[in-house]
């Protein structure tokens, strides 16, 4: 977790953490003051949240390896525009996915403020390009609602793990495995061919 915090060009962790924890009610007392231990009580989980446009999304903190600033990518041929390309992560080559493009918002115009969330799915390491990191929230399972059957905003429901609604915010928890399965071949989906 240290790498998560120290390798930041990430937005400062703000009071939202407190807000989120307090929203957790009684359990929040135990967690207040010091960050909740990952893998603590089974019913509580931490999520890294980030923004793309006006939307806020979350990924389980356990699958996040680090957050890095943007480095220029090398393009990969003949893939959908949300596959941004590949970059060199300390000698290992990882693909970078553009979350905005994935949700049909067009390719992100990258600036120095944009960040890449490096996630680990099974044996595989991947990067997700987002606008900014916003928060780390600790929520209990029962605070997460199952994804609605209908489309939420821009996203097809099958890419969601659930929704978390805290005080004045709604975080869409992503199912990153499915989100990019169409091009990675990790999960067999009905759109297993390229060019979704």
């Amino acid at each position: 977790m240290n790498s998560l915090v120290s390798s930041t060009p990430m937005a400062p962790v703000q009071t939202g953490v407190q807000a989120g924890v307090q929203a957790g009610g009684a359990r929040g007392d135990a967690a207040r003051g010091e960050p909740a231990v990952p893998g603590g009580p089974a019913t509580e989980e931490q999520y890294v949240t980030f923004t793309v446009g006006d939307e806020e999304y979350g990924i389980k903190i356990l699958s996040v390896r680090e957050i890095r600033g943007w480095t220029p990518e090398s393009r990969l041929p003949n893939l959908p525009d949300f596959v941004r390309g590949v970059v060199n992560l300390r000698g290992v080559i990882i693909p970078i996915f553009d979350l905005r493009a994935r949700f049909g918002g067009g390719a992100t115009e990258v600036t120095k403020r944009h960040v890449v969330v490096v996630i680990q799915i099974g044996e595989r390491t991947r990067g997700i390009l987002v606008d900014a990191i916003s928060d780390i929230v600790t929520v209990s399972r029962d605070q997460i609602q199952p994804p609605p059957d209908v489309e939420t905003g821009m996203i097809n429901a099958q890419y969601l793990s659930g929704l978390y609604t805290g005080a004045d915010r709604m975080v869409t928890i992503l199912n990153v495995e499915r989100l990019f399965a169409a091009v990675t071949g990790d999960v067999e989906t009905e759109e297993a061919t390229i060019g979704v």
Binding site: S74, L76, P77, V86, I93, P95, R124
Partner: peptide, 22 residues
């Protein structure tokens, strides 16, 4: 290792400037 095979691409490498080339 982290992505998948691509048509016309055997593998990748890292060039002197740290960038990836296919």
């Amino acid at each position: 290792a982290n992505f998948r095979r691509l048509d016309g691409v055997a593998a990748a490498t890292i060039l002197g400037d740290g960038r990836v080339a296919l």
